[in-house]
Amino acid sequence: MTEEIIIAGFGGQGVLSMGKILAYSGIMHDQEVSWMPSYGPEMRGGTANVTVILSDERISSPYLKVFDTAIILNQQSMDKFEECVKPGGVLLYEPNGIHQHPTRTDINIYQIEANRIATEMGNKKIFNMVVLGAFLKIKPIVNLENVIDGLKKSLPERYHNLIPLNEKAIQKGMSNIKAHIIEKSILS
């Protein structure tokens, strides 16, 4: 099993953290792992993406042009990465701020309203954990126990009191994912 993932959005949305947690979770799942971040000098508010590869075999290169899964959190990332999903792959996106929804019919497309869910839960900082939960519902490539261990590894100890809230956010993401239906226009 090899899963090649791109996570992309604005800096400050937890893109790199989500990738790091997935990477730690893969390590704890005895998988080979690659984590390759990319972000502009402006960080918060600028674009950021991370490539994560989890595999049962050696990873030959962390550099990819096509992915099994794209997790998209803003329109710029949708414009850049929608076409980079392999046919039969998965595109998961947060629709808030997306004005051109994905249109491909050869991939599986899902939505998670993570912004709304995080707001309802009272903490916008758990946005990325809602998204991560949605991804793990679609592709359970690591188990929740390893994700929680990954959170403990990636979060500074002073924030470990937030781990139960993050776990709830993951579970909310798992239970609120929706398949995206492409509307076909009728030509007359």
Rank of each mutant, 00 (worst) to 15 (best):
G46P: 07
T69H: 00
G9E: 02
S17G: 11
G45C: 10
P102Q: 02
M174W: 12
E57S: 13
E167Y: 13
I53D: 02
N74Q: 01
E42R: 10
K168M: 14
S188F: 08
G12C: 10
N123C: 10
N161S: 14
Y63V: 15
V66L: 14
N96Y: 13
K178S: 13
G173Q: 09
N143K: 11
K86W: 01
E32C: 12
R44M: 09
V52S: 00
A134V: 04
T47K: 06
L162V: 08
S61Q: 03
I163H: 06
K137Y: 07
I27Q: 09
Y24W: 15
D68F: 02
G11W: 10
S60I: 14
G97P: 04
A8N: 02
A48F: 03
I170M: 09
E167Q: 15
M28W: 13
L144Y: 08
G12F: 12
F67V: 03
S25L: 11
V66R: 15
M43C: 09
G89P: 06
A23Y: 04
E3H: 08
K139I: 11
I177L: 12
M28R: 15
N49G: 05
N146T: 06
I59Y: 02
I107P: 03
F127M: 11
P62K: 09
E183W: 09
S175G: 10
P37Y: 07
V131I: 00
D56S: 12
V147L: 04
N176F: 00
Y24G: 09
G89M: 07
I27F: 12
L144P: 03
Q31F: 15
S38G: 08
R58S: 15
R158C: 13
E113G: 09
P164E: 07
L92E: 05
I7W: 00
I141H: 03
K86T: 03
K20G: 11
I163C: 07
I112T: 04
G133Q: 00
G88F: 05
D30S: 14
H29V: 01
V90Y: 15
Y93D: 05
L91D: 00
L144G: 03
G89D: 06
Q111Y: 01
I126H: 06
V52C: 04
H160E: 06
G45L: 12
I5S: 02
N128R: 09
Y63P: 02
I141N: 03
H29P: 01
I107W: 01
G45Q: 10
G97R: 06
K172W: 05
D56Q: 11
G9L: 04
K20S: 12
N128D: 11
P37G: 08
R44E: 05
D106I: 10
P37C: 08
N143W: 08
I163G: 06
E94S: 00
V142F: 06
V52F: 06
N128K: 06
S34Y: 07
S34D: 08
